[in-house]
């Protein structure tokens, strides 16, 4: 598993993909941060920054995940990985953790933005930390979604487009819910909605159910990815 993790991590930086992801992430996040806080001269709307960032994940995360499994399938290196003495879970986890590491590191660099706030005022540290945790976990869940979709095709393009589609749908659920006429359906959808789960974080509090939900979402899609490989072997 570690070998696959290491190779995947390296592959991000010998191809332009890793740089593009980091660059775009920091650029977009920087601009959002500027508009929501520095330009406003206040930290009131900091939660909005995080919400916008989560929206941007729809484009950013597929960049990171589209290649993970689709490309191995296309160039047949998949055969190498699946005939090596490594378990399916090990292989999938190696890939997932590599993407998660790049994402995590970029996120860490990005957090430098908040240091600036302390230079000009006294922001609510707890609120910032809660938001960072929540946003990070949503990204981690989306990476698992992207990983899963990447395992279904051998075209990076299809993997990317379908990931964008699914992630956008998951985000839009938040806006669609209010138009649903049935109360019971609304509450069901709310339960599943990634953004609805995020609202407590915006109100500066840590929501344990949300943390558990995001982690489960990530675990579920990693598990489904393993199942895709298992199933393909038998069909």
């Amino acid at each position: 598993m570690f070998a696959i993790y290491k190779r995947e991590l390296r592959a991000y930086f010998v191809t332009p993909l890793g740089y593009i992801f980091c660059g775009m992430f920091l650029l977009v996040s920087g601009l959002l941060f500027y508009w929501t806080t520095l330009a406003e001269q206040s930290t009131e709307s900091l939660s909005e920054y995080f919400l916008y960032l989560v929206m941007m994940f729809a484009i950013l995360i597929p960049l990171l995940t589209m290649k993970l499994l689709a490309d191995d399938r296309r160039i047949k290196t998949e055969q190498l990985l699946l005939t090596a003495p490594v378990s399916l879970t090990g292989m999938v986890m190696g890939k997932y953790l590599a993407a998660l590491t790049i994402y995590g590191c970029t996120f860490l660099v990005n957090s430098f933005n908040f240091v600036l706030l302390y230079l000009y005022g006294t922001p609510n540290t707890a609120a910032i930390l809660a938001n960072i945790l929540g946003t990070f976990l949503i990204g981690a869940a989306f990476i698992a979604v992207g990983l899963f979709l990447s395992s279904l095709t051998q075209s990076q393009l299809i993997a990317a487009v379908s990931s964008i589609g699914v992630i956008v749908a998951m985000l839009l659920l938040f806006f669609v819910i209010e138009y649903v006429p049935y109360a019971w359906l609304r509450s069901v959808l709310q339960w599943f909605s990634v953004v609805d789960r995020y609202l407590p974080f915006m109100n500066q509090s840590l929501s344990i159910p949300a943390v558990v939900y995001y982690l489960s979402l990530a675990a579920l899609f990693v598990f489904l990815t393993v199942r895709v490989y298992d199933k393909r072997r038998w069909s």
Partner: peptide
């Protein structure tokens, strides 16, 4: 040790890096 019909190679690696990776992969 398996050599499939199409050699499973990562084109962006050098021979050294690739064999090192295989070594780690096979533990």
């Amino acid at each position: 040790g398996f050599l499939p019909e199409l050699p499973p190679l990562y084109m962006e690696m050098t021979v050294k890096e690739y064999l090192d990776f295989i070594y780690d992969l096979k533990g």
